[in-house]
Design a protein around this nucleic acid. Structure first.
Length: 423
RNA sequence: GGCAGGUUGCCCGAGCGGCCAAUGGGAGCGGACUGUAAAUCCGUCGGCUUUGCCUACGAAGGUUCGAAUCCUUCACCUGCCA
């Protein structure tokens, strides 16, 4: 596989390098042949999310340019948990971590190629950490970590007041040891990760230098935030999961479609493989006619295709067009309507019974968390049945309101749709 | 181990015997305006069989006609001293 010499320039243009060790040295190394690199994923949840996707796609970019990936799942580091500013993590059980390791592994695999000269390798740091003795750990690894330096790290400093356990404080040693092991056993000389990992990345580079006198590189990708600096998905309804069980592909697509104008260019560069010229063209179009949201549409389509596949994306686009088309829902064919609602999320109810009140349907479809909330939504004028506002909190759908004799389209607010299928 | 302070709804944070499902801010949700955007404004924001009832202010007891508010014990957190 030939090496793509433009890789680093492309990464820089995409804004994917927020921090790095000596960039010129890295450029030289990348030009010199297939560089073995690694990126780690800790199993802190049953699914990876948008932040991890940046790493996965960056790994793919490197592999596509001829370099050799080692994707690491943190069976060991996931048992410990890296320190975060908000406070101490609660430890997960070994069984939980093992299960999540498997799930994370399966999520990463489709993005990388495990064939050819620069085939990817999956590794688990549990393999070389579990059997390590405390004495060896303290002598061989701990000796290279000055506590005064560790204390000066931003995350650690921020925790000194509220408190930080020795467990989390030690995390950086484990991750650094991973890099050293991969360096020794596999010739891995590059690690990258999120910018919040910068301390852990440089920890590994230093350990390799101090312990083996070796030369290794690291860079950090930027933290993707909203225009106001807050994290995506942090506040509204949880993280943006890649697992379709945890976040429906439809909701995933809708998220990207609704991205703020200010961010769409940045996100296109980070999350799509569209070439530079195409992205710049989209940005120009968007600047001129933002209301068409061509850039958001491209973004949503590309990212959803990457994560959930082209077929699913087509179904979602059709569903979105049907639901947001603004046309008469009754004019849609039964097949189109049913398909759209199944994408958006639908609930079946038994048609032998009477149709339940709208309030109950809002709860049953998940549009409202409780009957109180459902009732409130109606009072506030935010509930719609077949795109007609529901005025009465006690409203009950009539039999003749079933579209094609089967479907009820419920909407909460401007863009939350759900179907009810009456059987 | 000693002393002091703290633990309130998703988060921060008031309340310090009845008028408290609990001020205020943030987040969320709905409406208006738009472009399924941002900003702004308005409303809303524990649950239910909803003019009332139930559950809630770290946990368990107690005082009282009545407690988030007072007392006791326990748990946890923070600071100072050992």
């Amino acid at each position: 596989m030939p090496i793509d010499p433009t890789l680093l320039d492309d990464l820089e243009w995409r804004g994917l390098i927020a921090h790095s060790t000596d960039l010129d040295a890295l450029r030289e190394a990348l030009a010199g042949g297939s560089v073995r690199f690694y990126v780690g994923f800790d199993p802190t949840a049953p699914s990876l999310h948008m932040g991890n996707l940046v790493q996965i796609l960056t790994a793919k970019r490197l592999q596509d340019a001829g370099h050799t990936p080692y994707a690491l799942v943190g069976g060991a580091t996931g048992m410990i948990g890296d320190p975060k500013e908000s406070g101490e993590r609660s430890l997960n059980s070994l069984d939980t971590v093992k299960e999540w390791v498997e799930r994370v592994r399966r999520q990463i695999e489709p993005f990388l190629s495990f064939e050819g000269e620069n085939a990817a390798t999956m590794v688990n740091n549990y393999d070389w950490t579990a059997s390590l003795s405390t004495i060896d750990f303290l002598r061989d690894v701990g000796k290279h970590f000055p506590v005064n330096r560790m204390l000066s790290r931003e995350v650690v400093r921020s925790r000194l007041e509220a408190g930080i356990s020795y467990t989390e404080f030690s995390y950086v040693l484990l991750q650094s040891m991973d890099f050293l092991n991969l360096f020794r056993d596999h010739g891995v000389t590059l690690q990258f990760g999120g910018s919040d990992q910068w301390g852990n990345l440089t920890g590994g580079v230093e350990l390799i230098r101090r312990s083996d006198g070796g030369k290794a590189h690291a860079f950090a990708t930027p933290l993707v935030t909203k225009a106001d600096g807050t994290k995506y998905g942090k506040t509204e309804g949880g993280a943006l999961w890649l697992d379709p069980e945890m976040m429906s592909p439809y909701a995933f697509y809708q998220f990207w479609l609704n991205v703020e104008d200010e961010k769409v260019g940045e996100l296109l560069r980070i999350f799509t493989f569209l070439p530079r010229a195409e992205i710049e063209e989209l940005e120009a179009q968007h600047a001129e006619k933002p209301f068409l949201r061509a850039a958001q549409r491209a973004l949503a389509e590309h990212v959803t295709t990457l994560v959930h596949g082209a077929e699913e994306t087509e179904r979602i686009k059709a569903a979105s067009a049907a639901l947001f088309g603004g046309g008469d829902l009754a004019a849609l064919s039964a097949a189109t309507l049913g398909a759209a609602l199944r994408e958006a999320g639908s609930t079946r109810i038994d048609g032998d019974e009477e149709i339940p009140p709208v309030v109950d349907l809002l709860v049953a479809t998940g549009l409202a968390k409780s009957k109180g909330e459902a009732r409130r939504t109606i009072t506030e004028g935010g509930a719609y049945l077949n795109n007609v506002r529901v005025e009465d909190p006690d409203a009950v759908p009539a039999a003749d309101q079933l579209l094609d004799g089967t479907w009820i389209v419920l909407r909460r607010g401007k863009k939350n749709f759900a179907g009810v299928e009456v059987h």
